[in-house]
Design a protein around this nucleic acid. Structure first.
Length: 422
RNA sequence: GGAAAGGUGCCAGAGCGGUCGAAUGGGACGGUCUCGAAAACCGUUGUAUGGGCAACUGUACCGAGGGUUCGAAUCCCUCCCUUUCCGCCA
């Protein structure tokens, strides 16, 4: 959520930046400014009247103590009148506050200057590429065939137990998942991230905090009997650890990592790219989250990108890093880098990580603040990224490393898996 | 699921319906002392939002939302949550 004060001071800039994100309703900006002015003057009137009432009530206390009953009664009638006067003001004030808030949460975060212009994924900017596309042996097949051939994943069984998009990993497929999770977590903790195992269900306040609610409600599985949501990413419970807290600047940066399954209803998913592991309702992911001082967030973003990049490199996968254009970015993000790896048999780039700086957008919703060294309290900046999402990594590992004798695992993974080949 | 208790500041923990933003203790921070540290002593230790150049000051906030009252942390109602005991159970 953007800060009203910022919007009021930089109205034109806000509109221009929203346009870059292809946010259509820039008229909301003027509405917010107007509503907030209304809120402010109502607040003034409310406070003024309330101050009179409080003062009079105090006097009544004194008069009663001295036994001056008639005087007290007189003051009481005055207060009654003031209260009648206050009542409609209070009502209007409540409405104005709610209106400002309801408008504010409709605005997406502003894109950073580095964000490329553009509307669709085709406009994303390739920042770097690495690795090289492998020469596949004759008769190379996509991962869903390999998964069957080596008995690693049973998609049909998942259909039976739950439904499509819930694969069952088995044998060395399950073992490889475990190895990847362990490897990713070790890699992250070695870089100073503290490991968490958070709840996989969150309450409304948490889902609101990271921006899943109110707009993206359809994306989450909702346990209505208890009003809890299955997490679409570890970002939700992990970032919410610090909801409503004021840190000391010395405590920053807060670096957290967590492995969790992620659940996505993907309500609006188009029937494309859904084969095999490409798009699932439940998948595993290791996430990294940082809370940092405002001045440092872009520096940290680059650090996180390099961190993820080295991890991808260690898996020996061909990859590219994209800077997302205004139209393709997420609602809450100010700058996002997507990582894609090349799935050689499908001949497709698959997104396996998204690293974003949210600046103070999430922190403002969650009230994550820090007291800086001058003693001033301000909003922290939050960042997160996948490090990494498992299914598509698995798909690439299988496809890119297939040989006639089996699948050769990258050296970094072998000790975790306990073998070289599948 | 049944029964009971309770939700107050960073934590613990007081709080006859009026002067309570809230005692006290601990912690943290600053200072005195010290070669340095500990101890001791002194001081500081809210958030949000208005007004003011500032000093300062108004308002709101004691789980959330309503209500009673001139006045609510204190009384009433609803909801949420926590703890303990019983039941069930990995």
């Amino acid at each position: 959520m953007l800060q009203v004060a910022y919007i009021k001071q930089n109205t034109e800039e806000v509109k221009r930046k929203l346009a870059k994100k292809h946010f259509a309703e820039t008229g909301l900006v003027d509405l917010i400014v107007a509503k907030d002015e209304e809120r402010k003057s109502l607040t003034f009137r409310f406070d003024e009247t309330k101050a009179k009432i409080n003062a009079a009530s105090k006097e009544i206390g004194g008069l009663m103590a001295k036994g001056q009953k008639e005087e007290a009664e007189g003051r009481k009638r005055e207060v009654e009148a003031l209260k009648a006067e206050l009542q409609p003001v209070q009502q209007q004030l409540d409405e104005a506050e709610k209106a400002v808030h309801d408008l504010l949460i409709k605005l997406p975060n502003l894109p950073a200057d580095a964000v490329p212009e553009g509307r669709t994924p085709a406009d994303n900017e390739v920042v770097r590429t690495g690795g090289s596309k492998p020469e596949l042996p004759a008769g190379a097949v996509p991962h869903w065939d390999l998964a069957k051939k080596y008995d690693l994943i049973d998609f049909e069984l998942g259909n039976k137990i739950t439904g499509s998009g819930f694969p069952v990993y088995k044998n060395r497929g399950a073992r490889l998942q475990r190895a990847l999770i362990q490897y990713f977590l070790d890699y992250n903790t070695a870089a100073g991230y503290t490991e968490f195992m958070p709840p996989l269900m969150v309450n409304e306040a948490s889902a609101y905090g990271t921006g899943q609610l109110p707009d993206k409600e359809g994306q989450m599985y909702h346990a209505t009997a208890d009003n809890l949501y299955l997490i679409p990413t570890a970002e939700v419970p992990v970032t919410n650890i610090y909801r409503d807290t004021i840190l000391k600047e010395a405590e920053l940066p807060v670096k957290m990592t967590a492995y969790t399954p992620c659940f996505r209803r993907e309500a609006g998913s188009y029937g494309k790219d859904v084969r095999g592991l490409n798009r699932l309702h439940q998948f595993d992911k290791v996430e990294i989250v940082q809370l940092v001082a405002a001045e440092r967030s872009y520096e940290v973003l680059e650090e996180m990108v390099v961190h993820v990049e080295k991890l991808v490199q260690s898996l020996g996968l061909p990859y590219r890093i994209l800077r997302l254009c205004g139209g393709d970015m997420g609602f809450a993000s100010a700058l996002t880098y997507d990582f894609e790896v090349y799935s050689a048999a499908q001949e497709k780039w698959l997104e396996i990580s998204s690293v974003s700086n949210f600046e103070s957008f999430q922190a403002n919703r969650m009230k994550i603040r820090y007291k800086n060294n001058d003693g001033k309290t301000q909003l922290a900046h939050s960042l997160n990224g996948s490090s990494l999402a498992l299914p598509r990594i698995l798909a690439c590992l299988l496809e890119n490393n297939q040989t006639e004798n089996g699948i050769l695992l990258p050296p970094a993974l072998q000790p975790y898996f306990g073998g070289e080949m599948i």
